[in-house]
Amino acid sequence: MYKRVLLKISGEALAAGRGFGIDAVFIHKVAEEIADAHALGCQIGIVVGGGNFFRGVAQQAIDMDRVAADHMGMLSTVINAIALQDAIEKRGIMCRVMSAIEMHQVAEPYIRRRAMRHLEKGRIVIFAAGTGNPFFSTDTAASLRAMEIKADILLKATSVDGIYSADPKKDPDATRFEQVTYNDIMRLGLGVMDTTAVSLCKDNNMPMMVFSMREQGNIVRVISGEKLGSLVTA
């Protein structure tokens, strides 16, 4: 269905409900799914969050300078990226971590043309350290990277099975949207992504699929064209 995708995985998802750190069993399940999707011939770029270690807007950063806190959050994404790279490479697939903050000992610097070349050669590319700038979330980094690598779609893997009118964990009457526009997300205040990321996708006609990664095989199903979760269009 899709030749090239950008997969956004939150840091919280890698904690698998533990709240902090990386769940070793879960990250290998994610790597296995990514390997299965790669076997279909799809070129895969990945952006990981860092919320399982530190978030610049979290409660523990409330007394910190926002720039310092955001830099700590970016470094957290690098930890997750290296862990995911290791799990993917254990399945015999070449994987590169490219960081927006230069750290040559652990990751390649992010260079757009080099990233696209890696994808063309069949390597999986994990984009770490967000955009490299404070005040921008990893959702915005995912939107930006999706457009830079000319992805067919942005896939946002979450803990819920789509976009709801309210938080389904708190409101049992929340209804799920099969399809929604970026304008609707902003108008209704749906907390899918931050406003910057939504505007970026809308202005550049980047479709997005929001789906649950709790169910084994969902990444492959989405890439194969199955209608899972919620589709967002411009």
Rank of each mutant, 00 (worst) to 15 (best):
M116K: 12
R214Q: 08
R113S: 09
R18Q: 15
Q105A: 14
A13E: 12
E148G: 10
A87R: 09
Y2R: 08
M206A: 11
N133L: 10
E89D: 04
K227T: 14
L75Q: 15
L231C: 05
G162D: 00
A87V: 12
L144Q: 12
R91T: 04
T233D: 02
I111W: 02
T131P: 14
A142L: 09
D184H: 13
E32P: 08
L40C: 12
L7F: 01
A141D: 05
L6C: 15
V5E: 01
L6K: 14
M147A: 08
V232W: 02
D184V: 08
A141M: 03
R176Y: 03
Q85V: 11
I153H: 02
A166T: 01
D173F: 04
M206K: 11
K29C: 07
I34E: 07
A100G: 06
G162R: 01
I9R: 05
A35D: 06
K3E: 15
Q105W: 03
I79R: 06
F54H: 07
K170S: 14
T140Y: 10
A100W: 04
A107Y: 07
C42S: 12
E32R: 13
A115S: 13
A166F: 01
H104N: 08
D171A: 01
T181D: 09
M209R: 15
R18L: 10
I46P: 13
S99D: 12
P109K: 11
S159G: 14
A166Q: 06
V106A: 08
K29Y: 11
H28Q: 15
M94Q: 13
C42K: 03
G56A: 05
S159Q: 14
A13H: 02
T158Y: 02
G132R: 05
I124T: 14
I27R: 02
A129G: 06
A83C: 11
I153G: 01
